[in-house]
Design a protein around this nucleic acid. Sequence first.
DNA 1: GTGAAAGCGCTAACAT
DNA 2: ATGTTAGCGCTTTCAC
Lengths: 344, 344
Amino acid sequence: MGSTIYDIAREAGVSIATVSRVVNGHDCVAPATREQVLSVAMRLGYQPHASARSLARRRASVIAAVIPMLTNYFFIEVLRGVQDRMAESDFDLLVFSAPTLEEVEIQLDRALAKGRSAGVLLFSSPMDAERAAQIRASGQPVTLVDEAYEGFDAVYTDNLQGGYLATAHLAETGARRIALIMARPESVPARERQTGYVKALERHGLEPDPDLVVVSEDPAYHGYSEQGGYDAMKKLLHAGTAPDAVFATSDVQAVGAMRALNEAGLRAPEDVRLVGFDDIMISRHLGLTTVRQPMYEMGRLGAEKLFARIDDPEHEVSRTVLSPRLVVRHSSEVPSLPPEAVAS
Amino acid sequence: MGSTIYDIAREAGVSIATVSRVVNGHDCVAPATREQVLSVAMRLGYQPHASARSLARRRASVIAAVIPMLTNYFFIEVLRGVQDRMAESDFDLLVFSAPTLEEVEIQLDRALAKGRSAGVLLFSSPMDAERAAQIRASGQPVTLVDEAYEGFDAVYTDNLQGGYLATAHLAETGARRIALIMARPESVPARERQTGYVKALERHGLEPDPDLVVVSEDPAYHGYSEQGGYDAMKKLLHAGTAPDAVFATSDVQAVGAMRALNEAGLRAPEDVRLVGFDDIMISRHLGLTTVRQPMYEMGRLGAEKLFARIDDPEHEVSRTVLSPRLVVRHSSEVPSLPPEAVAS
DNA sequence: GTGAAAGCGCTAACAT
DNA sequence: ATGTTAGCGCTTTCAC
């Protein structure tokens, strides 16, 4: 259980360099020697020491993922994509989860620490010049997922288009007073979705009404929370200017909004039609119409990009923009139609 | 960005040994020297090299978690507990996720690899003598979560009691023909829940009926899947001996069962009362009655136990059994009119 | 209290 | 094709 290349070299009657070559599959080694070394290694149950390897190679065999709120199903799906891509590589995954946005700073520091990982995947965290400088100073390859910043590899969804799709869907099917339950404006994706919302309203001849836009003031992650959506919906209902439809910038917010509606004795879609964003697992079961982000793909492509940069740090910087897709379910059905059981 | 203790030693006019002492907070160092070293380290933005450290210390600063189906919300909750406990330590978390049971073997091997981690948390994976031997041979501290095996630290839920609680709840509120949708019997927790189910039936004077027990034959993770529950419910409905209540050994299975019911034009609880197991996030939203496992606590305690063993390998082996709790929601409500037996 | 020196296990020139 | 050797950056006796 504790054999080293020295043990193997001794037993096999070769030098440690040869053992190293065999273990790493270098070609300049006689077939006979290779066999011999391999059999001894097998017999001794040899396993290379990961840390020693990273130290000598000056490259870790691990990549890090910094994730705000791992507990959010959105990230799990993205992570699945990351893992699938990683399975084809020799890297392992170090997960740094930040329960709050402030924690992201700390976790990013840890992830960036020297000799810990070969690169990091930074998820959905607002970038600024300071952070960009910090990352550059670390010299670590970093790729951004669900966000973008000048000079960084990134993969994200076209949020403006997503906001547009959701809103246009509601407008085209007769909604006139479409409210927006929005995450905190510090979130770039939230702002972009809002822009799409406004654009769709205008395109459909609807007047944007400030009273119909309410921000999730939840202290949790930028307002992307069920509680945030719940509070926002309550506010909307109490304002007296009841909307006939609501677009929420995330499914978790939409779920909260749905709960607020139910508590007020209202229902979606009968009283208020509802559309979310993300298409997390739960949405299907609740029959929530939503704008699907290709989460799995995002993770997969993010890992792909990171590997490319690790292989070649001089690689051209690139961004990949994924297209969202409207998934129509029960919650946005036009009321005149008889409501059906949870779909697809 | 690339400074080492040598750089600091030179700048501060001390030896590398002293720098190391300061960095590691050893006490035998003059306050003045300490200040000096610290300021230089700060100025140079020094960060210890993680791999070099693990190599010299013979201990990694990382623990590994081997998780089957990370995508299952159950594990996310457990992981949250793990992360919370880890935040109080200096360890980072390496995640090895296995989409299938066979993969667990591979991932466990990777996690156990020398010099990679200081210990591993093995989640919900069947143990046997062979695997136990493999783990012991690796010399790595391993603690089991949601499973147990002779000679290993473990934390898990009292599954028998859980199965009893679910079934007794149904029996006490009038159910007479209680079916069991069970995961594959290779799963120890599934068998224990079944034992609790049988015990509860007997205690309430109900005859266990083999026709009412159906196994999730889904090839996915031991049948703990929505599809598995769906298929099982279909089978139950087609058998002609319709149950008036169903206990499913997991929430995901219960969700699948619910879908099968809906497709058959039936509803829970009106036509068939339904109870699941786990209390994953979605259950609350679907109004699913379930047996709640303290997932967060399981993760937290698992990490705690692992740390204790890493600190002291001779530590007494211990198991912690957590108590499940019945959470009554809509899906098991007693219909206002006594349910009619849909006789053959 | 501090420094010199010997590893930790491996990789990668550079020789041969 | 194979061996020798010098690190990788850090920790840790063991002297002084």
